[in-house]
Design a binder for these strands. Structure first.
Lengths: 341, 341
DNA sequence: TTGAAAGCGGTACCAT
DNA sequence: ATGGTACCGCTTTCAA
């Protein structure tokens, strides 16, 4: 495999009878060089399509222009959206993104952190796993002077900037909307309360219900531990067949809402009308169900962008940042499933 | 930001009064070293938590253990699935993955290729954009001795190994299945015929129809240029309102099939029964529609794995590979929408 | 304005 | 079994 030997900076220097330093300066646009020399060097470099050896530059400068990005699971609409945002922003600033998934387990996250640190990324973007508590493996980055920005799934154990969704408010507005559409008996298919995002959504739901003087009933709150369509279906069935069936359901995610919708349709409930339905996350699928599913958009793309901007800023300033938290506003996506009773 | 200065191999050598070469050998498990020396070095390294400088190693060995991965669009169930497979396989072999999206446009792809090449990835996995024809920017990798493996969306202009879905056969089986369920007038919502995958699916559809002596009608084939839900809806409406309405529709993707399903339901057709419906891709959503959508699984995860395995093999063998094409079998996912007439 | 030279942190060849 | 040392390609003092 005869790959053509690439031309180096030294080659140029030799050919042009200049010193490597001069060539380096000319190429990197330093002052104090004669116009003529610069022109000459650039022309030669261009003509022989000189490309600096990134490995050498990185080694010398002790940086890689690579950002590490760890999410629980790539195959997940929200996360792939945040990744997309991160990629766009990184590109704009001349950074590359190394992606890894933790599989939502601690060992996977630790492994990803270690290999990324070993490779010498300049900083880390991370949405932690469900199992992460201490976060020593993340702390390691900070101790090497590499900034970390947490997003979406975060832990307060680590002093890093954070970008999170305003789950509380998003849920509050969603439930408010159901109420304004005339629904009064609102149930909530929640997630595991130990998970911060789920808990916040629950609190937002509760606050909205109470602010309007409506009943908050424990038995109208069901915990979906797997956040699955099946749970949505089953719990909805359970709720509707109970002595006190609700007239609206606010679901922790669109997938759960889809399960709820499937049950309601199969049991011949009118959605909306008899039962109002709200999801959360605004997955692509919510646009395409029938009826369309109302949801709460989390602006994943913008989150990825914001987190990446913060990180790159820190990298450039050689700063680790502090505990600041950026809260991303959500958007109520009112479609059909939540319309007037 | 006082990051603690990291200990280097030379530090160890000096402290232990050994030469750098000896320490290197001890750490990398070379033979011909006394047990004692090895133990001593390893102990010291462990105690001072020595971590080799990856940048230096990469520079010296002229490799990065990084694979570049370019897809048209990350936020797409199929691609995120292939990425997931690629990540898993890369991890297993000690490789990292740099991800970029082309946005399905040539300029984006060229940019991604250039930056990745500049960074010094060891090889490239790519699913090309719709606009890619010549592929000189990809050829550049080969000319630098870096192997490339194409997957899913490929071009034959480049001599590289390829991993593709058996679109023809997948489509053939899907239509076969509709026929075996009793449907006889089968329409096809296709994609743009210039796109290879779309064309193959069309050919598979046509062959199946003809093999069974059924009518192949041009007016039962509709081109969805955007592959959108809207097109699925509109073309299905058009088909069903025509003089010769079909009794089954094979759709180029699940999203299009969803549009078809939404129209059929709104127009009170029974699915299945009056109209049979098949999608393609087996997106997550197909499991959750009602009725469940029958589809064709493309094994995206396994594709990502396979492509990555091929690439890593080539990298390790310092080989560019040839034109071999691995064809991934598809799986018919029979759910409700295609069941008996 | 330019050059000389010392590294960055390893690896590997050539000695011994 | 171990040491000495010349690099890898580029950047960056320091000197001229």
């Amino acid at each position: 495999m005869a790959e053509k030997r690439k031309i180096t900076l030294k080659d140029i220097a030799r050919e042009l009878k200049l010193s490597p330093s001069t060539v380096s300066r000319a190429l990197n646009g330093y002052a104090s060089l004669s116009e003529e020399t610069i022109r000459q060097v650039k022309e030669y470099a261009e003509k022989h399509s000189y490309v600096p050896n990134a490995l050498a530059v990185n080694f010398r400068k002790n940086r890689t222009s690579i950002i590490g990005l760890i999410v629980p699971e790539i195959v997940h609409h929200f996360f792939s959206t945040t990744i997309s945002g991160a990629l766009e922003t990184a590109k704009k600033h001349g950074y590359h993104v190394l992606v890894a998934q933790s599989g939502d387990i601690l060992s996977g996250e630790v492994f990803a952190c270690r290999t990324m640190l070993g490779l010498g990324v300049d900083g880390l973007l991370i949405s932690i796993s469900n199992e992460t508590v201490e976060g020593d493996h993340i702390q390691d980055f900070l101790e090497e002077g590499k900034p970390v920005v947490q997003f979406d799934k975060i832990t307060d154990q680590l002093v890093t900037p954070k970008v999170v969704v305003d789950d509380f408010n998003g849920a509050y507005e969603a439930v408010n909307h159901l109420i304004s559409e005339g629904y009064r008996k609102i149930a909530h298919l929640s997630g595991r309360m130990e998970v911060k995002n789920a808990h916040e959504r629950f609190l937002g739901y509760k606050k909205a219900v109470e602010d309007h003087g409506l009943d908050f009933r424990e038995d109208w709150v069901k915990n979906c531990s797997a956040i699955s369509e099946q749970e949505g279906y089953d719990f909805t069935k359970q709720l509707m067949e109970s002595a006190n069936p609700p007239d609206a359901i606010f679901c922790i995610t669109d997938l759960v809402a889809l399960g709820a919708m499937n049950y309601l349709k199969s049991a011949r409930y009118e959605v909306p009308g008899q039962v109002g339905l709200m999801g959360f996350s605004n997955w692509m699928l919510s646009e395409y169900t029938s009826p369309n599913l109302s949801s709460v958009d989390q602006h994943g793309f913008e989150m990825g962008q914001k987190a990446t901007e913060l990180l790159i800023e820190l990298i450039k300033n050689h700063d680790l940042g502090d505990n600041e938290t950026v809260v991303m506003k959500t958007d109520l996506m009112i479609r059909q499933s939540s319309l007037g009773k």
